[in-house]
């Protein structure tokens, strides 16, 4: 199979004060893959996401997206290029109905480009996107105020903001955390469908069982450093990972 490199992260670092939040992390990602990033709390996963997507400045290191050096691009330009992200701390517009939350991304230059001017009515497009990820149109869920939606819908709404941009790569920051088993069970097929649709995914996760089922490869962070990278099976058997991650007294469902 001919694999196309979509994202290349090279020696990226960031310190806050004395704390090295992300320390010389590198990895390659190929188009169509699902990559998992795991690590204990505070190991730098969210910071890495922010560094790649241009939301905070890197101390050093480079990021290439589709062979373009995006290391110094501002956040909006990276999103515009097709690298979308979700926020671990969700960022809905609470006073707007759910479907209005997608108006800004649908208004963006990228959405206009990708629809080749055939976007039509943004509200209608928005409701279609919401329904695709599980907002029941018949129950009028898309019309409810975002601030009144339960967590499961808010996580999907984060994802929808990305999908509205017709992205090529999405970095999801803990979209499963805080959800019930059955909610996660309904999200997993959604992620698999996105992969089938040709979207590359990076999933920052705590829920290892679900992640290991769908990920093609997994990267493990600990204290800002990459301590392992490999297939879910390799990571599962890695001694260093077991030490740093599972030996730390944290309880994770792994099987």
């Amino acid at each position: 199979m001919n694999k196309e490199l979509i994202l290349q992260v090279k020696d990226v670092s960031k310190s806050f004060g004395g704390v090295k939040a992300v320390n010389n992390v590198s990895f390659d990602l190929y188009r169509g893959e699902i990559m998992g990033i795991i690590g204990p709390n505070g190991s730098g996963k969210t910071t890495l996401n922010n560094l790649i997507t241009g939301f905070i400045k890197k101390d050093s290191g480079k990021v290439y997206f589709k062979d373009k050096d995006i290391s110094r691009w501002p956040g909006y330009k990276i999103a515009d290029a097709g690298l979308a992200r979700t926020f671990q701390l969700l960022r809905p517009y609470p006073t707007l109905p759910a479907f209005k939350n997608l108006i800004p991304p649908l208004y963006s230059p990228r959405a206009r480009r990708t629809s080749r001017g055939k976007l039509g009515d943004r509200s209608a497009v928005s409701i279609d996107i919401l329904e695709e990820v599980g907002f029941e149109r018949d129950a009028r869920v898309p019309y409810k105020l975002a601030g009144a939606l339960p967590l499961g819908y808010l996580k999907r709404l984060e994802l929808c903001r990305c999908l509205a941009l017709k992205p090529e790569l999405i970095i999801c920051d803990e979209v499963f955390s805080g959800l019930s088993m059955s909610e996660i069970a309904s999200m997993v097929p959604l992620m698999e469908r996105l992969q089938r649709d040709g979207i590359t995914l990076i999933m920052v996760e705590h829920r290892l069982r679900e992640l290991f089922k769908i990920a093609n490869k997994v990267l493990v962070l600990n204290f800002g450093e990459k301590i392992a990278e490999g297939s879910p099976q390799e990571i599962f058997n890695d001694e260093k990972v077991k030490q740093a991650y599972f030996g730390g007294g944290e309880t994770y469902v792994f099987s």
Binding site: Y76, P105, Y107, S108
Partner: peptide, 14 residues
């Protein structure tokens, strides 16, 4: 005004 990061993540320049 209220949600600068979401706007940026939507590919719009503040």
């Amino acid at each position: 005004k209220d949600n600068e990061q979401a706007i940026t993540a939507s590919g719009l320049s503040i």
